[in-house]
Simulated scan of single mutants.
Amino acid sequence: MSETQSSRVEVLKAVGITKVYRSGTVAVDALKGVDLALYEREIVALLGASGSGKSTLLNILGGLDLPTDGRLFYRGRELSALSDAGLTEFRRRHVGFVFQFYNLVPSLTARENVALVTEIAEDAMTPEEALDRVGLASRMDHFPAELSGGEQQRVAIARAIAKRPDILLCDEPTGALDSKTGVTVLEAIVEVNRTLGTTTALITHNVAIRRIADRVIYMADGEIARAEENADRLAPAEVSW
């Protein structure tokens, strides 16, 4: 991004986030005092080996899990102090999730899968608009089994963005796809970021994908090892792996 970080508007801010998982007398430190801010309209790539804490951090940022210690803020409001009902409301109103596996309902068409969200969200897009945004206008009435993996993932993206979320969190969205199909999915994510201004965090094991992001966060052993800015982002079609 051309702006300095100090001039950007913080959407999410994590301060000293730790997460400890316990099993009997065994404690596993999944996150160790993570400090991170996500800013309006940016795409952030989270990279790191399995077990580095990427998914744990993403789940906490999205209100799916609570930290063991530390504080999390959404536009200045402390999320880490909310009840379960408050976190559910935060997720419902402000966060869209996209995972490696599409989690579509097999017995529903693409249109009907997206409608599951639009029927309960405020100020939602129509399913048709959401699907059109990810290039599936001609596939709305197909069932998941009639769609390719990339098309199913784009339905999942349409479902996530239909409520016009402020934040889009993607956990390995191209992990189950070949490179050509993965590029199509990344193009949908970048287009949503461009047109809706959705703050986007993207977990990937694929280091090549970092080039589409504004910033890259490298994680190791539950900590942020380093962060870097991408002065020259690439379009998804320019990325090869």
Rank of each mutant, 00 (worst) to 15 (best):
R71V: 11
A158M: 08
L38I: 14
T4H: 13
L147T: 10
G33W: 07
E146I: 11
N59W: 01
L47P: 05
L58I: 08
R154S: 09
L47I: 12
E151R: 07
A121Q: 01
R233F: 10
V117M: 04
R211T: 12
G51S: 00
E129Q: 13
Y102S: 14
E172N: 08
L168W: 07
V98L: 04
L104Q: 02
T174Y: 00
V185I: 10
Y102Q: 13
A85H: 06
L177V: 11
E229I: 13
A237H: 12
A30I: 02
A160P: 13
G175V: 08
R111Y: 09
L31R: 08
A208C: 12
D84Q: 04
N113K: 12
A121G: 03
A160G: 15
D84R: 03
I189A: 06
A27N: 04
L168R: 11
R210L: 14
Y21L: 00
N206R: 09
A156I: 08
R41N: 14
A225R: 08
Y218W: 09
S52D: 07
Y21A: 02
I212V: 14
G150E: 00
L31G: 06
R41I: 10
A30L: 02
S148V: 05
R194L: 15
A156L: 07
I209C: 11
I17V: 14
L169M: 15
T181Q: 03
N59D: 04
G197D: 07
V117E: 01
L64E: 08
L46A: 02
S2T: 11
I120W: 04
H94K: 12
V34S: 06
G48H: 00
M1G: 12
G16I: 10
L31F: 11
R139S: 08
A37V: 13
R93Q: 13
A27Y: 03
D214V: 13
T184R: 11
S148D: 03
D65A: 07
A37Y: 09
P67E: 01
A30C: 03
A162Y: 04
V9A: 14
T181W: 00
S6C: 14
E238W: 05
G16M: 13
R210P: 14
T109R: 02
T195L: 15
I224K: 01
S179T: 15
E3W: 07
T109W: 00
S83F: 08
G182C: 12
R215D: 09
R8F: 15
I43L: 15
T174I: 05
L108S: 09
K13F: 05
R71D: 12
T109M: 03
G175C: 08
S50E: 02
A160F: 03
D221P: 04
A37L: 09
K13P: 10
E146R: 03
A124R: 01
A162I: 02
L108C: 13
G53R: 01
S179P: 15
E229P: 09
